[in-house]
Design a protein around this nucleic acid. Structure first.
Lengths: 100, 100
DNA sequence: TATTTACTTGACAGTATTTGTCAAATGTAA
DNA sequence: TTACATTTGACAAATACTGTCAAGTAAATA
């Protein structure tokens, strides 16, 4: 599966936009956006929203991509990651949010 | 479903241990353990390991509980949380780890 | 070849969040 | 009352996050 960064870069290039142009709209330095696209940094949740608008990417698909990448990163060294995901999924479905 | 904190407290009381005794083994103040049990703070990953040992709780079940709670907390305000979980699950199953 | 332009890299700074201590407050039982 | 367990909240230290900046690379072009 493509990384979020890859999707962002592909879509930016498809629109013929420069890092400079997009990062200006995000109000950050080009350096950060460059790193985000190459996977060296993570975008913030807010930046993802803006990027979907700027690059005209379907919001749901971008967000789902971003979130699942974040979750996978958190579980990458865990032996019981899949089990945890399943429990989390069941809990959401069941409706019991019960968060802090 | 029970919270991680509830499980920890139940098991500590089952073993007739005081906060003081357990927190000493964790090398933290009782205040923190108290907060962890009441869900006011999260345990660290390392503390969860130690707690499973100290309280003789099945490691897999405690870890799964802890991780899924963490994930749910992260997704609590997300509209597409379930979708993200499913994608994450598929990605893990598929074997493509591809993390940063 | 020298300039220009886009992007990349790494050192660094400011801020936010996490993780903890401590002391005082509360609750409870002897 | 005293003693002990737990809770609470103010605070401090450590860590992680988010960004800037300036110098570097690479490719196109005057």
């Amino acid at each position: 599966m493509k990384t979020t960064g890859e999707i962002l870069r592909e879509n930016r290039e498809k629109k013929r936009l420069l890092l400079r142009q997009v990062s200006a709209q995000l109000d950050i330095d080009t350096a950060i956006l460059s790193k985000i696209e190459r996977g060296e940094r993570k975008a913030t949740r807010e930046q993802i929203n803006k990027l979907a608008d700027i690059l005209e990417i379907n919001k749901e698909s971008l967000i789902v991509h971003y979130l699942s990448e974040k979750i996978l990163c958190e579980l990458k060294d865990e032996d019981f990651g899949i089990q945890a995901l399943k429990v989390a999924e069941e809990t959401i479905k069941y409706g019991a949010t019960k968060n802090q």
